[in-house]
Design a binder for these strands. Structure first.
Lengths: 243, 243
DNA sequence: GCGAAATGGACCGCCCTCGAGCCATTGGGG
DNA sequence: CCCCAATGGCTCGAGGGCGGTCCATTTCGC
């Protein structure tokens, strides 16, 4: 009998035989909390949910959650206080060490995340525009746009992230929000390696306005088109700096 | 001091404070392998990678992988043979028990997965059409389309899934393929609850042809439009049967 | 016929994670 | 003033998952 050939290796199989879990529970928890803090979902000064509550939400034991929180505390991201009305609070971020890119297969990561984003975000903008948004969501979109436009350069990326997440959230589908959040986290890791230029900010703000306006006007094609154009700018910028 | 209000509960936070892991390694592995078998990525008769290799790819220990494979074997999905050129082989699927929907928050799940799909798949089709596809990918798309068009009703959904995955794969971005695969798995769980009607199959085949033609012609807007129309049909069908 | 190679099968000791319970601290309300 | 409620801090025993190692089986090539 000749050896059963799995030589050609269906590339599709790679998508299924990929790692089942990203790491141990501790690491994944730290990563998730860091993501929430860096993307500005948990703003400085905010109190995180109580440990007993948060552990249940994250689907981990309180022991493991506490280990993660202790690591974040030692890194200066959060601060804990005991007693009634105590809790774990987000500190004004130190965020000093943007870890240098491993640069191993940076080109592949760049292409992958840009494609993923090009798939997700225009679709999210379109779906958001196609819904009858409740007043609360409309206000949230407007507020996020405003926050972004008035941000100091140091705050820009955090608020930019929040705006994009607000759009994803406006689709009403939690899994869309989760997917956009993951893509955004990967993108931010790449963005940390390149400078933030005022002309780009100005350009982005105009495009943000176009996207939000189209969503609030209930014009899906326009929302999609505006978002696609917006992403093209960032993509070109990243490719220019990292290729 | 008044209690720090986390009453309003930023809905965005829910996307970040969601469970870190879906279950234990054993369960997740069984689920992943079942996904590969049900979606036809691992076809009947195929040999799976050797345990030592597969365990590394899935990022789990061989012990845990073997427990998962043993469960699949007892359920009749795979069969193992020892010795050189032995291995674990996919059996012609029994697939008898489509577990009845929990139906708990079925409406929410339905809305979520349909929105996710509406975001992902038209975007994937558009991105695939925008690329210069290598000959191998073009052949794969044509073959998948043909497989789907000539499928017996019993095989239709498996081949349909493979076609959609082939489109995602054509974007060249592994994370897009992974996201589409996950959405498809959730969708299939819902589709199992409704009948497969010949007119729908015929309708789907025409739409599939339109999507693939647009992709091979390098016409992104047409690919997106054709896929959007295709998804609308399935979405309407599901909403009709499950609402 | 026989050894080498590749595979599934089985076991052991270590560490991570969990669930549960209890302690320590703080501020508000009676 | 004292007790209660809500929070973080801590510990213990049980079970799961891991890395490593060796065994059993089968087939190819010499």
């Amino acid at each position: 009998m000749s050896p059963p050939s799995d030589k050609p290796e269906d590339p599709l199989a790679a998508a299924f035989f990929r790692p089942v879990r990203a790491g141990n529970a501790f690491e994944e928890t730290v990563e998730r909390m860091l993501q929430a803090i860096r993307l500005g979902v948990a703003a400085p000064g905010t109190r995180l949910p109580a440990e007993r509550d948060l552990a249940v939400r994250l689907g981990i034991s309180r022991v493991t959650l506490r280990e993660a929180l202790r690591a974040l505390q030692e890194a200066g991201f959060v601060e804990s206080r005991r007693g009634r009305y105590g809790g774990t609070f987000v500190r004004a971020a130190p965020d000093p060490p943007p870890p240098p890119q491993p640069a191993a297969d940076l080109a592949a990561e760049l292409a992958d995340v840009l494609t993923l984003r090009a798939v997700l975000e225009p679709g999210a903008a379109e779906q958001a525009a196609a819904r009858a948004l409740p007043p609360r969501a409309r206000r949230h979109l407007r507020a996020s746009l405003d926050d972004c436009a008035t941000a100091a350069p140091a705050d820009y990326r955090r608020r930019d992230s929040r705006l994009h997440l607000a759009i994803a959230e406006a689709t009403g589908a939690a899994s869309v929000t989760a997917a956009v959040a993951d893509a955004r986290t990967r993108l931010n890791a790449l963005l940390d390696a390149i400078p933030l230029l005022p002309p780009n900010i100005d350009h982005s703000d105009h495009q943000h306005t176009a996207v939000i306006t189209a969503i609030l006007d209930g014009d899906p094609p326009a929302a999609r088109a505006a978002m696609t154009e917006h992403l093209a700018g960032t993509a070109a910028l990243l490719r220019g700096f990292l290729s």
